[in-house]
């Protein structure tokens, strides 16, 4: 294992956070001046993250709904009980899992390919590296609008291209077809998320000592073998980190899919977050929507915990 890379912990740390070599031993109790210094940073965190979160969790146990002069009552775990028997929610959850897992896996595969390529000594490498970052620079709403044009059944460039090379004859309505809508948005998800995966993997690749690969080459290992036995194990912590982060992001994706399909057709692309949004802001059931939010957080944390534990164990 590389000595400069800390193993990821249960809460996803920023990728490859360097640890100072000479950490001072911690006192049992933080002293006053440290608290004073932390306060300015803590206030916004408490105000804008912790407080809304706590309020959201509280809402999940109430029957809060929209309206003027509505009495909100505490209903205990009733929202969660309703959630368990809500077929639509589970359908949406399943869609969310399919989406998050496929986007994360494909992002990793595509990002790895691109990172390996950009790690080579290519001419104009600086340009290629810059271009690879373009999707990252675009706000999700713009990406959504752009891809809606690409997928447009009559005027879209995708159908036009497919027609030109003779693959299809009619128009495919990518975003409104029950069977292709989900794959179509997954492609967009991969496209948008690739840059940060690529850049993190590229950073990781540059940390792999050249000597190791050279040594393997001298020992007669081919390109594939070098990748599998030298590069990949070295990259493992980076892969674990970026995959976990990507999974969380993708599970919580909202803006992109909202712009592309609004969850249609017939709910086939309704990710859990879109469902919660509808529940809260279209139909006005705030309490129930908050319960969905809490349930999603719980499931994401569980999945992550299991995944990270396994990864950490294998790395030891």
């Amino acid at each position: 294992m590389s000595s400069t890379t800390a193993p990821p912990r249960a809460e996803p740390p920023p990728p490859a956070a360097p640890r100072g070599p000479g950490r001072r031993p911690r006192a049992g109790r933080p002293d006053r001046s440290v608290l004073g210094l932390m306060l300015p940073a803590l206030v916004p965190v408490v105000l804008f993250s912790v407080a809304p979160l706590v309020y959201g969790v509280y809402l999940a146990f109430t029957d809060a709904r929209s309206g003027r002069n509505v009495d909100v009552a505490f209903v205990g775990p009733r929202n969660f009980a309703d959630l368990l028997s809500d077929g639509d929610f589970w359908a949406s959850f399943q869609i969310g899992l399919v989406w998050a897992v496929s986007v994360t896996v494909l992002q990793l595969a595509a990002g790895m390919g691109l990172a390996l390529l950009l790690n080579q000594d290519l001419r104009l490498r600086w340009l290629a590296r810059t271009l690879a970052m373009v999707p990252w620079a675009m706000p999700p709403v713009i990406v959504g609008l752009m891809w809606r044009l690409v997928y447009h059944p009559d005027a879209g460039i995708l159908n036009a291209t497919l027609r030109d090379i003779g693959l299809v004859s009619g128009d495919i309505d990518w975003l409104n077809d029950f069977s292709v809508a989900l794959p179509a948005i997954i492609v967009v998800g991969v496209w948008t998320g690739m840059p940060q995966t690529t850049i993190v993997l590229l950073a990781g690749l540059q940390g792999v000592p050249r000597e190791l690969r050279e040594a393997a080459e001298v020992d007669g290992a081919g390109a594939w073998r070098r990748f599998r036995s030298v590069t990949l194990p070295q990259l493992r912590p980076v892969i674990t980190t970026i995959t976990s982060l990507n999974f969380v992001w993708n599970m919580n994706e909202f803006a992109l899919v909202w712009v592309l399909t609004q969850g249609g057709p017939g709910g086939r692309t309704r990710l859990p977050m879109l469902y919660a949004y509808e529940e809260a802001f279209r139909y006005g059931f705030f309490g129930y929507a908050a319960a969905m939010g809490v349930a999603i957080v719980a499931v994401v944390l569980t999945v992550l915990a299991v995944y990270l534990r396994r990864q950490l164990k294998e790395m030891r």
Binding site: A51, G56, A289
Partner: peptide
């Protein structure tokens, strides 16, 4: 990328 959790949004609106 910036994310807005609908949960947070709901809480803020409230």
């Amino acid at each position: 990328r910036r994310r807005i959790l609908p949960l947070t949004a709901a809480a803020l609106t409230g």
